[in-house]
């Protein structure tokens, strides 16, 4: 991993960090002088290489949320499926949740392995036009834990962007872990020389979730990542027997609707809780194909349409600007 040399001590802060060459653990490291000189803090050459690699990818969309378990992976997977339902579009889904990769199971690819080819790692294909990459494909058993500190996770993300044979793509969707830490900073940094269309933010209706999501929005503003819009997931549950709606995760502070109004962000849609979504994810099937006429699937389709419109508008704006 580029950020932590092989001969570094256990608590290496990373060669590009502020503490490089200065922290207590740097004492005695053979690289201390080099790190302390600041040479390692120069922009990572990988950023330019990634820029080159990504020049054949038209649209890049990040799926973010400050909160865990709100449905980032479910949304990413279904966004990928929906975009790839147009067979003229090439779509790829990259999972940068290094410690908890859910994408392989949701896409029905558990147990698949990545192959090495002349031009890099080959992603795993669900369909001819839908490629997937996740650390899950590099693990030998479903029990394998990836017990890695930040710098090693960053190295992996860099490899995913630079060393995977993505080919020509219309859409690259990046699914992220919860929080605002290493993975998020890295993906934004590594993609800084390319054009990222923006982020889709996922939340559930409760304030407990929104308070973390507001932090994620702050993060996007700090790193100047445009926000495509917000999706409220698990929004109300319609009992299959009596058809009454229950607010299982109550929007006590007005839910995503109020937050979006306050922060002047577009609300892309509200997806109801539907047991069939969780079941499809467990079985690795697309919920949009399994129950296309359900209310949740209809909301999903509308959200996907809005994201597509956003992306094509952005292209048009850029063309008229030049």
């Amino acid at each position: 991993m580029a950020d932590v040399p092989d001969n570094a001590p256990e608590h290496c802060p990373g060669t590009a960090s502020e503490q490089a060459g200065k922290s207590a653990s740097c004492q005695g490291c053979p690289n201390q002088v080099l790190c302390a000189s600041g040479a390692t803090k120069a922009p990572d050459p990988a950023i330019a290489e990634i820029g080159e690699k990504m020049s054949t990818v038209k649209h890049k969309i990040l799926v973010l949320s400050g909160k865990g378990g709100v449905g980032k992976s479910t949304f990413s997977a279904h966004l990928a499926h929906a975009l790839a339902s147009d067979s003229t579009k090439e779509v790829a889904l990259l999972d940068v949740d290094i410690c908890g990769p859910s994408i392989p199971r949701i896409m029905g690819l558990e147990g698949e392995q990545v192959h090495q080819s002349g031009s890099g790692w080959s992603p795993v294909y669900v369909d001819d036009n839908l490629a997937v990459m996740s650390i899950g494909f590099l693990l030998s058993s479903p029990d394998d834990a990836v017990i890695w500190r930040g710098p090693k996770k960053n190295g992996m993300i860099k490899q995913f962007l630079r060393d995977v044979d993505w080919g020509d793509l219309d859409y690259l969707i990046v699914d992220t872990p919860p929080g605002t830490s290493d993975e998020h900073l890295s993906i934004v940094q590594y993609l800084s020389s390319t054009h990222v269309d923006g982020a889709v933010i996922i939340t559930t209706p409760q304030e407990l979730s929104l308070q973390d999501v507001r932090k994620e929005i702050r993060f996007c503003q700090k790193v100047k990542l445009p926000i495509i819009g917000v999706v409220e997931n698990m929004s109300g549950f319609v009992c299959p027997k009596c058809k009454n709606t229950s607010q299982i995760f109550p929007p006590t502070t007005g839910g995503a609707e109020k937050m979006c109004a306050d922060l002047d962000l577009p609300l892309l849609g509200k997806v109801p809780l539907d047991p069939r979504i969780a079941r499809s994810c467990d079985e690795g099937k697309s919920f949009l194909n399994e129950v296309p006429d359900s209310p949740a699937a209809e909301v999903y389709q509308r959200i996907v349409q809005r994201i597509q419109d956003y992306c094509s508008n952005r292209v048009r704006e850029e063309q008229s600007a030049t």
Binding site: G14, R149, T180, R214, K215, R218, K222
Partner: peptide, 14 residues
């Protein structure tokens, strides 16, 4: 500020 994001990498969290 409760909305402030704690954008920290590993060593700072540690």
């Amino acid at each position: 500020d409760p909305d402030e994001a704690v954008v920290w990498r590993g060593p700072k969290k540690t």
